[in-house]
Structure formats: structure tokens, C-alpha cells
Amino acid sequence: MIGAQDAGRGAGSARRGEGGRELRARGRERGREKRAQEEMLGFAFVIVLVIIIGFVILMLTLRGPSSPLERENTRVNSLLNSITHFTTSCDKESVQQLIIACRNGESSCGEDSCAFVKGEVTKILGQTLAGDFRFSAEVTAEGEEQVLLEIKKEENGECSGKRTSFVASSVLPRRTIIKLVSCPEMSASADSGE
């Protein structure tokens, strides 16, 4: 009787031992699952972070084209137009007429037309443009390429494509082209406040 009881107890503890192992194995499995879930969560968090940072960078880079640049271009264009039609003190001739005279090698008011125009335009640009500039009149006829006159103010380096520059050009009779490049020190062109 006692022997049978012992045998029963032995079988019970063996069953319990098996159950414990199974439980431990399940626990380990659950622990692994939990760790995997945590890692997935971390990964998702990193992805969300990257998306947010990317979104902010995208918003910063995709800002619309700044309209002050367009306006400055229009301004330089209208200045060049005004300069060409400006009536000089020399026989009430316009700058445009004097440039044509310069191209033809004529003199105006007892002075070389090119030198007269250069002096006049230098004074005008000094009064109207705050930054650096380059003004030129060129002939671009076939087989005849010649710079008639050039006025430069380049205190902050060459006024070319390397700097923010605004170019305006106008075609005069006899294939004469005048060009004005303005290189202002960039700031908001619109002034606010009263």
C-alpha cells in the first residue's frame, strides 16, 4: 500500500517536473517575444523620428522662390530704360543717342561721345544704385565685336554670376547692346514701418 503510494508520488513529481520545464520554456518564449516587440517598437520610433526630421528639412528646403529677386530684376530693368532715355546736358541729346554717336565715332559738345556718356552714366549710377554694378555698351555685329564703353564699381569682388546679380539689357540701333549688372548687398528691398 505504502509502496503504491510512493510510486504515485514519484509519478506526480515527474509530471510536475515536466510541467515546470514546459512553463519555463513558455516563459522564455514569451520573454523573447516581448523583447522582439520592444525592438520593433524602438525601430518604429526611430522611423517616426527620421520621418519628422525629414519633413522639417523638406519644409525648409522647399520654400517658394523669393519674390524680392524678381522685383529687383524689374527695378534694374526700369533703371536701364530710364538711363537710356535720360536727356543729357549736351544739346539735349539722350544717353541712347550719345551711345549711338559713340558707336559711330562722333564727338558731342566738343568732347568724345564715349567719354561724355561714361561720365554721365557714372554719375547717374552713383546716385541710383547702392551696391556694386557694371555697365557696358557693346557692338555685336557679325565680324565686329567691340566694347564701346564699360563702367565698373566692384568694391566687393567681381560683379558676375558668382554673386547675386541682376542683369538688364537693351538693344539700340545698329546692333548696339547696353547691359547693366547690379550686385547689391542683399537685404529686404521692401522697407516696412512708418
Binding site: L79, T128, G193
Partner: peptide, 10 residues
């Protein structure tokens, strides 16, 4: 306050 813009004219 106000915003003002200018342009050259002949």
C-alpha cells in the same frame, strides 16, 4: 506700419 515698394521711371 506699411510696406512700400519702389521702381524707377522715366
Amino acid at each position: 506700419s506699411r510696406t512700400s515698394l519702389d521702381s524707377f521711371v522715366t
